[in-house]
Write a protein that binds this DNA or RNA. Structure first.
Lengths: 153, 153
DNA sequence: TTAAATGCAAAGGGTTTGCACCGGA
DNA sequence: TCCGGTGCAAACCCTTTGCATTTAA
């Protein structure tokens, strides 16, 4: 049940328009990256995106990908954070801010619901700390990996 | 839970003994790094540690620092995670596993109490996800930075 | 003595940048 | 036409590794 209704931010559908209205351009490379991002419906590292784009067009260069990611983040289409290994991780910007639970074994990412974090936010808020949900990362083991680990032992 | 009672910090005072009993050695370089780590009493990146060590001894080489950090982590003295910029961050291992709240403005780190995270852990636990408290990072704004930000606006 | 640790230098991985050329609008 | 984008190549930063040398125990 890893969040189905991921109808990301209202406008993942009209990227072209959003770019244009910002005086930016709609290019084949950008289209490719958008498609790839859509297909991932989750979290990917910059390097992975470069690879995925290369799958479509072997000519793809890292600089273009990273520069486009920058642009997409600027117009609020995607967000990025960092994985455990320190690499950048991008994901389609959600309609609402939310944290993530990342399995340290298989890397699976699940989004945290408001209910999951309500108390934490309240607790820290009481101490004067304003939580930024988009930068809340919880490490751990997902159900499957945990079972696998127990089995090994 | 796999939280072995590694009451780490208790022994930040007898690193030498801990190394020895593991068949490892006590060297000037290690001593320097330990001192530096003690002085930070917080979170530092690998690169920062290299710099700080160079402050004491300009001859310090990165490889030694990183290798020592590795060793220190192995004996449970320190832990590392990743900062927002993707760089490794080391900190003295706490006596008990706990998460961190990091101010995105000033970088200040505060530790989360059990009370802060109890509900989150329970909530995810119910979904089969075993939270690893040592990898729980919450971004946000600390009291002071938040006030400063409001003042600016 | 002898395995562990160091220093150096070089590689490595991910990401960024400068610059000339290309191409959407 | 014109400014934004692209591709290339090289640079960068942090981190890791191989290997000969040093050194703690």
């Amino acid at each position: 049940m890893t969040v189905r209704t991921r109808s990301a931010s209202q406008g993942f559908g009209d990227v072209r328009g959003r770019l244009r209205s910002a005086g930016l351009r709609w290019t084949p490379q950008r289209r490719a990256l958008i498609d790839v991002l859509k297909a991932t419906n989750g979290h990917v590292t910059g390097a992975e995106l470069v690879e995925l784009c290369r799958g479509r067009d072997p000519e793809t260069t890292p600089s273009t990908v990273y520069r486009t990611l920058e642009v997409l983040e600027e117009i609020g289409l995607i967000k990025h954070s960092h994985g455990r290994d320190g690499r950048q991780e991008f994901h389609i910007a959600p309609s609402s801010e939310h944290g993530h639970a990342i399995c340290e074994s298989c890397g699976e990412v699940r989004e945290l619901s408001d209910a999951d974090v309500d108390d934490l936010v309240a607790s820290l808020g009481g101490a004067g700390f304003a939580v930024d949900l988009s930068h809340l990362a919880v490490g751990g083991l997902c159900h499957d990996c945990r079972a696998a680990e127990v089995a090994e032992a």
